[in-house]
């Protein structure tokens, strides 16, 4: 299994869900956490993430970094 190095800056997340909707691998989901800004934040299932970068592309809030 590919183990991508995906990093989430969840303090930037505003819970728009763009990343979840666009993830073909169903690696992203909201959990019940709320960040300091009060937004429901996204989490990643690292077993499913292949590091394709789609979440980075559609995220308006600079949440994701991916290193191969």
């Amino acid at each position: 299994m590919l183990m991508s190095k995906i990093e989430l800056k969840t303090e930037n997340c505003k819970g728009c869900g763009n990343c979840i909707r666009n993830c073909r691998f169903e690696a992203l989901a909201f959990n019940n956490e709320v960040n300091a800004k009060g937004y429901r934040i996204v989490t990643v299932d690292r077993d499913k993430c292949v590091g394709c970068g789609m979440c980075y592309t559609v995220c308006p809030d600079y949440v994701f970094s991916i290193e191969d």
Binding site: C59, D61, E67, D68
Partner: peptide
């Protein structure tokens, strides 16, 4: 190999509304 890093020319989180397209254009 895909590397996607928040650009150096972004220095702070933006304050647009959730789902606003501005953040993407700026990035």
């Amino acid at each position: 190999a895909i590397t996607k890093q928040i650009p150096d020319t972004i220095f702070a989180a933006n304050s647009f509304c959730p789902g606003c397209g501005h953040g993407i254009v700026i990035r």
